[in-house]
């Protein structure tokens, strides 16, 4: 039995409680905060498992940066997740129980906790301890393996991080204005330029025809810059890709004519902006 048994059990109990709370809660703020707590507690357990480097990273990344990112994304999205009906919980529960049972069954073949002679702990991993002392002469073996023995791997990870950063910048823009507000898939404008209400209105075709009109009135009050981006977005609008029903074609042609009239109004606002 490991010497740190009570500490381990305590930390694991906290982890289980936090994970179950994440399942049960619906407030996204609480969920994000609990996820930070989860990361921090698992970082504490990493220290108990002798993985100081990993604990360090988990505390800085998991509990620090990712919580900040989740919060800032939450600010741009929702505060509350809607309840899911009970019937939709059954299939996931079944899958999770089956998968968990299969893994429980497999645990019998795993090496005992803390076994120094397990296959994982006898071969290449432990060889690094001696190789580092002979080849590199630095005390921290993790840094040596990370930088030198597995340098290719780390290079790949660095490129992955770079690519992920690039992806976020493409999606949101470094100054936060990539693809601003306007999204017109299949010629149908889904985004009113006003702040959308919390509950999306699933509009029927008739209301859809009216929607851009109300927007047109409000668009005048918008600054000229926004009109610019809107016009850019409109250029991208693909002409109808063969709508199925006749009514849809009508709608699309109407929206297109409306968008033409809107561009006129935009020109007005632009000239107003120029006059100022």
């Amino acid at each position: 039995m490991p010497s740190t048994l009570i500490l381990d059990i305590g930390l694991l109990a906290i982890l289980v409680v936090v994970a179950i709370m994440i399942v049960r809660l619906r407030s996204l703020f609480a969920i994000v905060m609990l996820q930070g707590v989860y990361s921090l507690v698992s970082a504490a357990w990493f220290v108990s498992l002798d993985a100081v480097d990993v604990a360090f990273t988990e505390a800085a990344v998991g509990a620090g940066v990712s919580t900040v990112l989740m919060l800032s994304a939450m600010l741009l999205a929702d505060r509350e997740s809607k309840p899911v009906p009970l019937s939709n919980h059954l299939a996931p529960l079944f899958i999770v129980i089956v998968a968990g049972a299969a893994m429980f069954y497999a645990v019998g073949d795993m090496p005992a906790y803390g076994d120094a002679n397990s296959p994982a702990n006898t071969h290449v991993g432990m060889d690094f301890m001696e190789m580092t002392a002979n080849d590199i002469h630095i005390p921290n073996v993790v840094t040596a393996v990370l930088g030198s023995y597995r340098g290719f791997d780390t290079f790949g990870e660095t490129v992955v991080i770079f690519a992920a950063g690039l992806g976020v910048l493409l999606l949101l823009g470094l100054n936060g204005n990539a693809g601003r507000w306007q999204a017109v898939p299949n010629g149908i404008n889904l985004t009113p330029s006003e702040a959308p209400p919390g509950v999306p209105q699933v509009v029927t075709d008739k209301t859809l025809q009216k929607k851009p009109k109300s927007k047109k009135v409000k668009a005048k009050s918008k600054v000229a810059q926004k009109a610019n981006t809107a016009q850019k977005a409109k250029k991208k609008t693909v002409p109808s890709r063969g709508a199925s029903s006749l009514s849809k074609k009508e709608v699309q042609s109407k929206t297109r004519t409306q968008s033409k009239s809107r561009s006129n109004s935009k020109a007005e606002t632009k000239s107003k902006g120029g006059a100022k």
């Binding site: 498992l49 993985a51 076994d115 994982a120 702990n121 580092t132 005390p139």
Partner: peptide, 13 residues
């Protein structure tokens, strides 16, 4: 947890 060795030290010589 797989990499943990009973009574071991962190891998810093």
């Amino acid at each position: 947890t797989i990499g943990k060795v009973e009574g071991g030290q962190p891998p810093i010589v």
